[in-house]
């Protein structure tokens, strides 16, 4: 066979493959699945787990982690992990965190083992930790490298609010702070319930879109805590399937009333072709940005604060100026 015949054959083969592939598949939306299906929650199972050290427990990644004694030198590899450690009152036992840690403000004063892109295994090991806490979403690579360190690595990962509760309980168990963990979780539940109760009176449920970037448009769909927050706050996510991306056309069709995004990309969002004349959130400039002491992107208890702010933003008529639920309308008493 001459080379030109082989090339021609390959070309025809690939074209046939394309056509076959096209016929075989239903047209699919330009949306990629972001998360695996939600795993079974460990809530309820924790009560039976051992309380005293040494202990073994299963972390979010499904691995068995053995911890010989209550950890005293904890290294955190992600801002969310650092926050959880502070929330559990482990302030004095954190020996190092990352340069990206900005909450609580004291976290910035701890020694750092690097940032998102320049984390160093050497610096982690040099801290001589007895527990390393990592977030699977951002620490995947370094978690694999840390197996050489012979230090227990606790991997946390939360996609939904329920999974946030789980990670708090797992961390509480691993550090011997069970009571604190239960207190933090029930505190979160109480606040979320209060918001649900208040927005339950709302007549409308505004359409909401979360955006992390404009090129491509990264977003959050069902199965994410951002989606949970939107429904808690009395909104409706226009992304109705688990997705990490959405097309510009789908946004125009979805007609979001409010866009949740960072201040830094607001201008770019307003400049998306066609949005200024057709997307309500851009037409009315209704962008929601969480305040500096709340968060939309970290799986931490501060999510409750973001939910309160969002509920207030979506349903201002239901709240007083201070953000407290407005008093219910009471009929004037007959004299």
């Amino acid at each position: 066979m001459k080379p030109r015949n082989i090339l021609g054959f390959l070309f025809i083969l690939s074209m046939a493959g394309l056509v076959y592939w096209r016929i075989e598949r239903e047209p699919k939306p330009i949306i990629r699945t972001a998360h695996p299906p939600i795993q079974n929650t460990v809530e309820g199972q924790l009560a039976e787990l051992p309380v005293s050290f040494p202990l073994s427990l299963t972390d979010s990644s499904g691995r068995m982690v053995s911890i010989p004694a209550p950890p005293q030198r904890i290294v955190s590899l992600a801002p969310s992990c650092t926050e959880l450690l502070y929330d559990l009152g482990l302030d004095s036992r954190i020996s190092a965190d990352t340069t990206a840690d900005d909450f609580p403000p004291e976290a910035a004063k701890k020694p750092h083992i690097g940032g998102y892109s320049d984390m160093s295994v050497e610096r982690i090991i040099a801290q001589n930790p007895d527990l390393i806490v990592a977030d699977n979403a951002i620490n995947k690579q370094i978690i694999a490298q840390l197996s050489i360190a012979h230090v227990p690595v606790l991997v946390l990962e939360a996609h939904t609010i329920l999974e946030v509760y789980d990670t708090i309980r797992i961390l509480g168990r691993a550090t011997g702070q069970n009571a604190e963990a239960d207190r933090v979780v029930s505190g979160m539940k109480t606040r979320f319930d209060a918001i649900r109760k208040t927005v339950g009176r709302a007549i409308s449920r505004p359409r909401v879109l979360v955006m992390y970037g404009t090129d491509p448009i990264y977003t959050s769909g069902p199965g994410s805590f951002q989606d949970d927050l939107i429904s808690v706050a009395g909104g409706r996510n226009i992304v109705d399937r688990p997705a990490a991306q959405i097309s510009s056309e789908a946004v125009v069709l979805g007609q979001p009333d409010v866009i949740l995004c960072d201040d830094s990309i607001k201008d770019k969002v307003a400049q998306m072709p066609g949005w200024k004349e057709r997307v309500p959130a851009v037409m009315n400039s209704t962008f929601f940005t969480p305040s500096s002491d709340s968060t939309l992107v970290r799986a931490v208890p501060r999510l409750t604060k973001a939910a309160e702010e969002l509920a207030h933003f979506l349903h201002p008529e239901l709240f007083t100026a201070e953000g407290k639920p407005a008093p219910l309308y009471t009929a004037p008493q007959k004299p």
Binding site: Y116, G213, T214, D215, P216, S248, D262, S264, M272, P273
Partner: peptide, 29 residues
């Protein structure tokens, strides 16, 4: 690399998209 390190990941993705070559989101402008 600098964009990633400065924590402004959206700038890094914008430059990466540009390196890939993309017609997404072209407008009349």
């Amino acid at each position: 690399s600098l964009a990633f390190r400065s924590g402004e990941a959206y700038k890094a993705t914008a430059i990466l998209t540009q390196l890939l070559g993309s017609l997404n989101y072209l407008g009349w402008r």
